[in-house]
Design a protein around this nucleic acid. Structure first.
Length: 824
RNA sequence: GCCGAAGUGGUGGAAUGGUAGACACGCUAGGUUCAGGGUCUAGUGAGGGCAACCUCGUGCGGGUUCGAGUCCCGCCUUCGGCACCA
């Protein structure tokens, strides 16, 4: 394919000019309005892919636009550079994670440079450097002091491939989020951040995040999982133990026929010795727990249970009910004990039928309700039956009454339960932030003193790939002395989840080289929250929830003012090829380097922005890329042509020529529409379409005609200004070619002038009974009566009115006339 | 199962309740060219007509309205998230 314009030469020379003039360095002027534009920083895997290109093209267009609108724009980039792939490279190829990471960063930085993205690289942040991760450690110590970081043992998600534990959020359908291998359970001790202290806040504040997509807010809301109900206590017969159950259906309390407890529930330690079936119970528990540590528990299996032989007392009726152990009861949710109401809960129903437990109906469906199929639980609304003094009440009303009765008797209370659990941050891996804790035989768990930070991750460790963290094998690392008593002690050898790194990097960007603090409070006050955050929806829960938690915790530490990190969030769609996500295994990967080489950075950027709205998936189409390329080539040709004509670019005068007037109106309508598209919803695809229309309109002009040239030059100059956020290199080049000095980034965004958009005639739509019958070109301010007269004069309208009686007309000023007619 | 989003030409996609299909890809014809490529011009939802025009058309079925891709009710399909959460 031949070259439509010398993009390579243009892009190289424009990039050199940007560099020479320091075009992207932050102008941080006191009193100036600010805009913080941030794209999710990448993991340095080695090469950028089309998803990155799309993400950064959107962010760069916005950053450039805001800068032209007069904002001081903070637009930084960095590297989320701790993580497993680096460690795997070390094991597989013998290269040190640090060296591998450095190489990758160098290469990716070059790739980003080639795209001409307007980052202020003097503010680069790299999370695997001690200057950064020391503040992870510092935050950890602050959290530890406040009880927000703690250690506990428990059954944890274990990925046998990554050889590390995973947080709940990092298990997807029973598989590891990173390597997709099955996750099993393993009993271990690990460190947690107490995100549950913020559950209520994190949930409630979601409704104020108006700049976030509804979808993401709902996903986070579901993840936090608030449910309202009651906690009800059942006394165990012949024992001092009371078992609490959590239920959202206290109205079905009279339908309880058994109680089920989770196999790993701590109360069982005390209860099992009392059980007549102690041996078989223990065998059952062992079996269930064994299965859970070996099965890839992607979907619920068969419900299984065993009777303990123990009995509990119903808190209102005094009925004696059996206590069962059930594999389907989740120990970590609610109280780990559930009341069995087989008539009105499908799971309990299945369980009761399998084990022959009684089924007692207590909710009668409304009469109008179709009878539900027998052999199934009825979970809908209704009124109470077989429920003593509560009979006849609607079940919604009964919830409150029954709770009140339980409260009277001291047997229960209203209760709100959340699904969200604390964030486990320990990872049994090398390439991460060392957790600043020392274990001393005399003093116990001792935090590393702040003055000893950072705890440096040692370079000289062995990467065997045999399992276990290299740190745990590194004596020079773990052997230390207790800061309290100087006794020989052992360091914690687990490292932090890398999501800790990304939970506050946006704060570090506000003050990236501060050696004394994570960031100055003033800097954060000036820039936080991020005005526009842009990234993939795959982080809707993990990263975005952790960042919200971190920001709130730091606010409580008094170092941030804003409770929320990101004011507006744009979740860009995926880049698809042949109907599916690009991936190496499918062999449908488009390499950004090849595209840039063949078409130039401007074309690649323009296409990714033009072909779909930013939040929708983008279907990559090699052919369609050429459309963007042709547009830029045509613009280059036209501007080069007209630049040769020495007539000046006058500001538009009214020449009285209708074609000229109409072109001027088109120019200003384009300014209005492009600005609206960007301001309202980042509709970059339609903004670019408007620019293509303007080029088509300008192309109709004659660059040889001295009458037309001034307006044409004005038109092209405007087009270039409006195009510059999307195709900055060619725009800058052509801007200079038309004789303008300076960087486009420093030019003010054009303003649409109302009077320039006034057209002598506009199309009026004439409908009959809502069907289009004619369009008439008439002055925009025409009177209703005159419009009707003109319409009735029209031959097409007359023809359609034959045999009809005009009943009324609907008139929309400046737009349309609808004649409502009936047969005569 | 629950929650959410989306269904518009051959394709990607446009349309504050007011001309459905902007803009682009592709395709067709023609100009340029020895030729191919590129590029330029015109056409391009379906059906009918020489034409002016006419009819139909935004997943399906109803409804509201002078007027519905858009609002309301009921379905279908696809995609995404969660999932034994009591």
């Amino acid at each position: 394919m031949s070259s439509l314009y010398p993009f390579e030469q243009i892009e190289t020379s424009v990039q050199e000019r940007w560099k020479r003039e320091n075009a992207f360095s932050l102008k941080d002027r006191p009193g100036q309005k600010t805009f913080y534009c941030l794209e999710m920083f990448p993991y340095p895997s080695g090469r950028i892919h089309m998803g990155h290109v799309r993400n950064y093209s959107i962010g760069d267009a916005l950053a450039r636009y805001k800068r032209m609108r007069g904002f001081d724009v903070l637009h930084p980039m960095g590297w989320d550079s701790f993580g497993l792939p680096a460690e795997n490279a070390a094991i597989q190829r013998g290269i040190h994670p640090a060296a591998w990471t450095e190489q990758n960063i160098a290469h990716m930085k070059e790739q980003l440079g080639r795209l001409g993205l307007s980052y202020d690289w003097s503010r680069e942040v790299t999370t695997c450097l001690p200057e950064y991760y020391r503040w992870n450690q510092w935050f950890f110590l602050k959290f530890y002091e406040k009880g927000l970081a703690y250690k506990k043992a428990g059954l944890l998600n274990w990925c046998a491939s990554c050889l590390t534990v995973l947080a709940n959020e990092q298990v997807e359908e029973g598989l590891c989020w990173r390597c997709k291998s099955p996750v099993t359970l393993r009993s271990m001790e690990q460190w947690y951040f107490k995100i549950t202290d913020y559950t209520g806040e994190l949930l409630d504040a979601l409704s104020d995040l108006h700049g976030w997509p509804e979808k993401v807010r709902i996903m986070q809301g579901n993840w936090i999982g608030k449910s309202e109900g009651a906690e009800i206590r059942f006394a165990v017969q012949d024992s001092p133990v009371e078992l609490s159950v959590f239920t959202t259906r206290p109205d079905t309390l009279f339908g309880v026929t058994f109680i089920t407890i989770a196999p790993e529930h701590p109360a069982l330690d005390g209860l099992l010795p009392l059980s007549p079936q102690k041996a078989s119970n223990e065998a059952f528990i062992r079996e269930v727990l064994h299965k859970r540590t070996t099965d890839r528990n992607t979907e619920p299996g068969e419900k299984e249970g065993v009777d303990t032989g123990l009995r509990v007392v119903h808190p209102l009726t005094g009925d004696i009910l059996p206590l069962w152990i059930g594999n389907f009861v989740v120990a970590s949710y609610g109280t780990g004990v559930v009341m069995g109401v087989p008539a009105h809960d499908e799971r309990d129903h299945e369980f009761a039928r399998k084990y022959g437990l009684p089924i007692k109906e207590v909710i009668a469906p409304p009469i109008a309700h179709e009878p539900h199929p027998p052999g199934m639980a009825y979970t809908g609304p209704g009124h109470l039956i077989h429920s003593g003094s509560f009979n006849g009440l609607s079940n919604e009303l009964a919830k409150g009454k029954i709770i009140a009765e339980l409260e009277n008797r001291g047997k229960g209370n209203r209760k709100v339960t959340f699904r969200l659990r604390d964030w486990g941050i320990s990872r049994q891996r090398y390439w991460g932030t060392p957790i600043p804790i020392i274990y001393c035989e005399h003093c116990g768990t001792v935090p590393v003193p702040e003055s000893d930070l950072p705890v440096i991750l040692p370079r000289d460790v062995a990467f065997t790939g045999k399992g276990g963290s290299p740190l745990a094998e590194s004596e020079s690392f773990y052997r230390t002395t207790c800061p309290n008593c100087q006794a020989p002690s052992r360091r914690e050898t687990d490292t932090m989840d890398t999501f800790v790194d990304s939970s506050w990097y946006f704060l570090r960007f506000t003050d990236p080289s501060n050696p004394k603090e994570p960031f100055a409070k003033d800097a954060a006050r000036r820039w936080i929250p991020v005005d526009q955050y842009i990234g993939g929806v795959e982080h809707a829960i993990l990263h975005l929830l952790y960042s919200r938690f971190f920001t709130r915790a730091l606010k409580d530490l008094g170092i941030v003012d804003s409770p929320e990190p990101f004011r507006s969030l744009l979740t860009q769609g995926m880049v698809l090829k042949d109907g599916s996500k690009m991936s190496k295994s499918k062999g449908n990967v488009v390499d950004p380097d090849h595209l840039v080489e063949r078409y130039g950075a401007d074309t690649v950027r323009l296409f990714t922005l033009f072909s779909a709205p930013p939040d929708k998936d983008l279907a990559w189409d090699d052919k369609a890329v050429e459309g963007a390329y042709r547009f830029l080539g045509r613009l280059y040709q036209r501007v080069s042509e007209i630049a040769k004509n020495p007539s000046p670019a006058a500001s538009a005068k009214d020449t009285g020529n209708p074609a000229q007037k109409s072109l001027l109106a088109k120019i200003h309508e384009t300014i209005r529409d492009v600005t609206f598209d960007l301001e309202s919803n980042n509709q970059m695809n339609t903004a670019i379409a408007r620019l293509m229309e303007l080029l088509n309109a300008l192309s109709a002009g004659n660059p040889e005609n001295p009458e037309e040239v001034p307006l044409l030059k004005e038109g092209y100059t405007t087009l270039i200004l409006l195009l510059s956020p999307f195709a900055p290199h060619l725009s800058q080049h052509l801007y200079a070619l038309l004789g303008h000095k300076g960087l486009l980034l420093d030019q003010p965004w054009p303003e649409a002038r109302e009077e320039a958009m006034v057209r002598e005639e506009i199309p009026f739509v004439i409908q009959i009974n809502g069907k289009l019958r004619a369009t008439l070109m008439l002055p925009p301010d025409i009177e209703r009566a005159d419009l009707l007269k003109k319409a009735l004069e029209d031959e097409r309208i007359q023809r359609n009115l034959v045999g009809m009686k005009l009943q009324k007309e609907i008139y929309v000023p400046g737009k349309l006339l609808n004649l409502v007619v009936v047969p005569r």
